[in-house]
């Protein structure tokens, strides 16, 4: 009984019309969670975590650098998941989800690169080193930009959804290949002159600050993606009657 009910729900919410109000309810909740977690994480990061014995205070960049790097990779995986679902099940909503996630993933990707550069300067003496992780992060940013450029260039909604999904899957297949090839290239060219391995034992308070910030990044991503997918749904379903009512309501509110 319960399984059939949940399956019904799943398909029910796969329709943009059903998902739109749900997203509207969930987005502010996740936004609030993100704010609370970010405040808590920053409090731990700046007022609880002690000074690092080796790196001094500059290590505090870790509280955004690592969550941003995780998030940028994870968001690409989630986009690939939605793309696969969209191609396999032919649902409109999944492609819209992938498109709603892309700008936030690209933003986190850039944040990871930027904070990595600012962290690298005092610790290794250079803003940029062609390290495997930094380089594959840069290539991931290019993949995000390519996806967004392709989606923006296509006018026909059906083609946009599917072409974006194929590109996303092709990119997802290539991400591990890129990572390992860059790593191989990096070990050949640089040897062990630059070692990016973190201190082996990170104080648990630092780790917990980082994890709280990572959860905040999750909540932020979910919230922003839900807000964005609402706009995408309105644009896509503009001819549906319920969208007209919603638009009229929004038009009066603003």
């Amino acid at each position: 009984m319960s399984t059939s009910e949940s399956r019904f729900n799943l398909y029910h919410y796969a329709a943009p019309q059903a998902f739109y109000p749900v997203a509207g309810k969930l987005a502010p909740i996740f936004a609030a969670i993100a704010v609370v977690l970010a405040v808590a994480g920053l409090w731990i990061g700046f007022f609880k975590a002690p000074t690092d014995a080796v790196q001094g205070e500059v290590y505090r960049i870790i509280f955004i650098h690592v969550p941003a790097a995780w998030m940028s990779m994870f968001v690409f995986l989630v986009m690939a998941f939605w793309s696969a679902v969209g191609l396999a099940m032919n649902t409109r909503l999944s492609a819209l989800m992938a498109q709603a996630l892309a700008p936030t993933g690209a933003m986190f990707c850039f944040v990871a690169l930027w904070t990595g550069a600012l962290w690298g300067r005092p610790t290794w003496g250079a803003y940029w080193v062609w390290d495997a992780r930094l380089t594959s992060q840069l290539l991931l940013l290019f993949l995000y930009l390519g996806y967004m450029a392709l989606v923006a260039a296509i006018d026909d909604p059906r083609r946009r959804d599917k072409a974006g999904a194929i590109l996303c899957l092709v990119g997802a297949v290539n991400v591990p290949i890129i990572y390992f090839s860059v790593k191989w290239w990096n070990t050949l060219h640089q040897g062990a002159s630059v070692s990016l391995t973190k201190a082996p034992s990170m104080a648990s308070i630092m780790l917990s600050g980082m994890l709280v910030m990572a959860l905040a990044a999750w909540a932020y991503t979910i919230s922003v993606a839900l807000y964005r997918v609402r706009v995408l749904i309105l644009e896509r379903e503009r001819h549906a009657d319920w969208v007209r009512g919603e638009l009229a309501r929004l038009g009066e509110a603003s």
């Binding site: 290539l139 072409a163 194929i166 290539n174 090839s181």
Partner: peptide, 23 residues
């Protein structure tokens, strides 16, 4: 195939494909 007939197709194709050529 993905950029077939799109405006700015050549530059777009480069943006899509060049990162994949890196390995």
């Amino acid at each position: 195939a993905l950029t077939l007939g799109l405006r700015g197709g050549g530059a777009l194709l480069a943006l899509l494909v060049l990162p994949l050529f890196v390995p």
